[in-house]
Amino acid sequence: MSAETPRTGGPLAGIRVLELGQYISGPFAAKQLADLGAEVIKIEPPDGDPMRRWEGRATMSPQFAAYNRGKSSMTLDLKDPDDLERLLALTESADVVLDNFRPGVTERLGIGPEALAARNPRLITCSITGFGPTGPYSARPAYDTVISAVGGMYSQVVPASTVRPMGPAFSDLLSGMSAAQAVLAALHARSITGVGEHVEVSMVGALIDFLTESASAFLETGQVAGPDSRPRRAQAYACTGSDGKAFVVHMSVPEKFWTGLLDVLEHHELADDPRFATREARVRNYDELDAVLKRITATQPRAHWLERLAAHDIPHGPLNTVADLFDDPQIQSMGLVGELDGPDGTVRVPMPSTRFHRSGRARLAYAPLLGGRTDAVSAGSPASDPTSEGARA
């Protein structure tokens, strides 16, 4: 793909998205749309998205690159009347405008959903906020740690005895996914009605949507789920072989998986133990069975158990770290790693997992340099960044 060739392919080819996003939630939503073939123009302040400078980088941190591939960058100072007018003019040819500002910011700038709809009735606007547009928390700064705590996510993954933030940016990523899904639904509705839509997504609401099972269980029964609630019900266990390598087993409901596991372990006497004789008993005595399984599996290396589990058709898998993940033969076979030509050379990146057999896959490009296409986009030319090439899977 040449430097000046627009990105083509994918089911969203021909859709133009303007992203007014910083950090993760908005950029992740727009990245998903870019992965589906949309032309995404990232509107940045003159000094850029703050994530560009993480880890001491001058222009392109790995985190910024992860959330902004496939986009073009246009620098505008939205407090400058001329730059604001350039943005407003650009919205007239856009299909989607996506932001993750605090509530009220776009209205104060004169680019709220009503103002933009007046200029382009077909426009879809999508706003991602931390706590929604109203309520006692709505004006607070919203970062993932805060939202993941308030929204109940940490209580599902962090033991009560371990009070600390944990894991990926749950609320940023889930709200980004919700926003991308909502934009796709709005695009479909527009194809029928011819009229745009304003979509509101909150980070805390996206978490509650994601915690459907535990939230519904509490509202119906008063039962409060914790980190071990789901593994206990699902009969999921983590074990470690004699070589120190970990793996998981998920027995779920079918009794055949329990009896098959006893064949794997060659400990059929456990079937007669009243603590484990039925699924209900195994749920009640989860900790006791967990200790028994760990003691048995510690006698042989992980490869021994994985081979036997596969032979007996028991749901299982190695507990991969990110360092292990891309060496896993299944992951390698799926073509989920590709190469992109970035400003400092070729970089290996994870590829989109969704494949469209008729519309094809968008030609991916590395994250853009700051303002790399400001003049060209303003002039109406394609938004591909001249520093980026296509992906090589």
Rank of each mutant, 00 (worst) to 15 (best):
T8A: 08
T8F: 01
G9F: 03
G10W: 05
G10M: 11
G10T: 08
P11F: 11
P11L: 09
P11T: 11
A13D: 14
I15E: 04
R16F: 03
V17W: 02
V17N: 07
V17I: 14
L18S: 10
L20D: 08
L20K: 05
S25I: 00
G26A: 13
G26F: 03
G26S: 13
P27W: 11
A29L: 11
K31A: 06
A34Y: 06
D35S: 08
D35W: 07
L36T: 14
G37E: 02
A38H: 11
V40A: 14
I41V: 15
K42M: 05
K42S: 14
I43R: 09
E44H: 14
P45S: 12
G48T: 01
G48F: 10
R52V: 05
R53P: 01
G56Y: 07
G56A: 09
R57L: 00
R57N: 12
R57W: 04
T59S: 15
T59L: 14
P62L: 00
Q63C: 03
Q63L: 13
F64C: 05
A65R: 12
N68R: 03
R69M: 03
S72M: 08
S72T: 07
M74K: 09
D80R: 15
P81M: 09
P81A: 09
D82W: 01
D83H: 14
L84F: 04
L84W: 03
L84H: 07
R86S: 10
R86N: 04
L87H: 00
L90M: 13
L90A: 11
T91V: 11
T91M: 06
T91N: 12
E92S: 03
S93W: 02
D95Y: 05
D95K: 00
V96N: 13
V97C: 11
V97K: 04
N100F: 07
N100M: 09
F101L: 14
F101D: 09
F101Y: 15
P103H: 03
G104W: 04
G104K: 05
G104A: 05
V105H: 02
T106F: 04
R108I: 02
G110V: 01
G110L: 02
E114V: 05
L116D: 05
L116S: 08
A117Q: 12
A117E: 14
A117S: 15
R119K: 12
